[in-house]
Amino acid sequence: MSKKSFRQAINEALRQEMRRDPTVVLMGEDVAGGQGGSSGVKDAWGGVLGVTKGLLTEFGENRVLDTPISEASYIGAAAGAAATGLRPVAELMFVDFVGCCLDQIMNQAAKFRYMFGGKARTPLVIRAMYGAGFNAAAQHSQALYPLFTHIPGLKVVVPSSPYEAKGLLIEAIRDDDPVIFLENKVMYDDVEDVPDEAYTIPFGEANLTREGDDVTIVAIGRMVGMANEAADRLAKQGISCTVLDPRTTFPLDEQTILECVEDTGRLVIVDESSPRCNMACDISALVAEQAFGALKAPIRRVVPPHTPVPFSTPLENLYMPNADKIEAAVKAVMMQKTREVA
């Protein structure tokens, strides 16, 4: 066990799985970053943010493949390789680039198994960065997990910390279905205790980062940290919150969400993705359908407005959910009462 950053946790997960299983290969734009460069250093970058640094040196060019800037071809190749005996981990860099290769994910990889009558396995992981808060503007800041969650056949992972990232990525690589693994770009330097050994965290089981009596906060990815910060402040004001991290948006741990809402009677959902048809909507619908009777107040969603992500810092700050907004939402649900029905 030692302190590791989110970036190191992911690098270690990739390294340990590549050592364990020779069919695991990496591909993506600049995952080595240096092929064909005049420095002659093939392992120059290790990804635009250095997450895959050092892997080419250990595993060689057959298993760590720099690609042309050509998402449709290499994401499709990853799908084809997965169906024919490899376990590729393809890096899409920014998840916003999925516009260039959605067919390969949505119509190919996700549907092989069903279309082929259960005769295909597609053990593919697509890693990508998501999220605002980096002044990366509208084409490099989206939180597109709802888009993938919508597509049957995909599993979607949004880790909330370095420990979570390592265990969930190893699980993703060992999983036989296509997995979209989304890393918040603001979190790469977050640090916590992470075991040195390989370990897995199963999909579809929410993590309760704290347990409380008054309000359930469901938060996704980077929002989990903000929700915990808000819950710390609220505790000092006498409001105790459960904070629940679903870890995977598909499969979604509906049972734990419903149990927590049954316990607290109040629900706030914090979701960084655009507000129409996002996870907050989905979870609201789940609770409205199956735990309506337990609700003591209307559900609140803490989500950004329905705009592209703005560039300028003050606008981006206005756009993003944060601990203040979560705190305000929790206080608001504590004040509200459901309409008394005679």
Binding site: G167, P195, E197, A198, Y199
Partner: peptide
Amino acid sequence: VGRKMADNVLRVRRLDG
């Protein structure tokens, strides 16, 4: 035996081997 205690045992169980 709370949820957290179970989580802590699972963290150990999930280590390879």
